[in-house]
Amino acid sequence: MDRLYRLATEKTLTQEISVYDANSLYGETGKFRFLQFSDDAVQGAIDLKDPKRIVLEYPRAIIHLMECNHPSFKSLFMIGHGIGTIAGHYADKQVKVAEIDEKVVELSRAYFDYRRDNVVIGDGRQILSGEEPDSLDYIIVDAFTKEGTPVHLTTAEFFGMTQKKLDARGSIILNLMGKIKNDRLMNAIYSTLVESYPYAKAFSLPGKDTSAMRNIIVIGSNKTIDYQQQAMAGFIETELGRGHVMVDKQGTIG
Rank of each mutant, 00 (worst) to 15 (best):
residue 87 A to D: 15
residue 81 H to L: 02
residue 113 D to Y: 11
residue 109 R to E: 09
residue 72 S to K: 14
residue 99 E to M: 06
residue 75 S to V: 11
residue 120 V to N: 02
residue 73 F to Y: 14
residue 116 R to K: 15
residue 114 Y to V: 06
residue 71 P to Q: 11
residue 68 C to F: 08
residue 77 F to E: 10
residue 65 L to K: 04
residue 104 V to K: 02
residue 76 L to P: 03
residue 97 V to T: 13
residue 65 L to G: 04
residue 92 D to L: 08
residue 64 H to Y: 11
residue 95 V to G: 01
residue 94 Q to Y: 15
residue 119 V to P: 02
residue 71 P to R: 04
residue 56 L to F: 01
residue 109 R to W: 10
residue 95 V to L: 00
residue 54 I to K: 03
residue 105 V to L: 14
residue 53 R to W: 00
residue 89 H to E: 01
residue 102 E to D: 14
residue 104 V to G: 07
residue 87 A to M: 09
residue 113 D to S: 12
residue 73 F to K: 04
residue 120 V to R: 11
residue 93 K to Q: 03
residue 112 F to V: 08
residue 85 T to C: 01
residue 78 M to A: 15
residue 62 I to M: 06
residue 99 E to H: 07
residue 117 D to M: 07
residue 79 I to M: 10
residue 55 V to Q: 12
residue 109 R to D: 08
residue 58 Y to H: 15
residue 110 A to E: 14
residue 51 P to C: 09
residue 102 E to R: 13
residue 68 C to W: 00
residue 95 V to S: 03
residue 62 I to N: 06
residue 108 S to Q: 01
residue 55 V to D: 09
residue 89 H to L: 03
residue 90 Y to R: 07
residue 60 R to H: 07
residue 87 A to Y: 08
residue 50 D to L: 12
residue 52 K to C: 00
residue 118 N to A: 12
residue 52 K to R: 06
residue 85 T to V: 09
residue 60 R to L: 10
residue 108 S to G: 12
residue 93 K to N: 07
residue 103 K to R: 15
residue 96 K to Y: 03
residue 55 V to E: 08
residue 64 H to W: 08
residue 77 F to C: 09
residue 54 I to V: 08
residue 70 H to M: 09
residue 61 A to V: 12
residue 120 V to Q: 10
residue 108 S to W: 02
residue 94 Q to W: 14
residue 101 D to T: 15
residue 57 E to D: 15
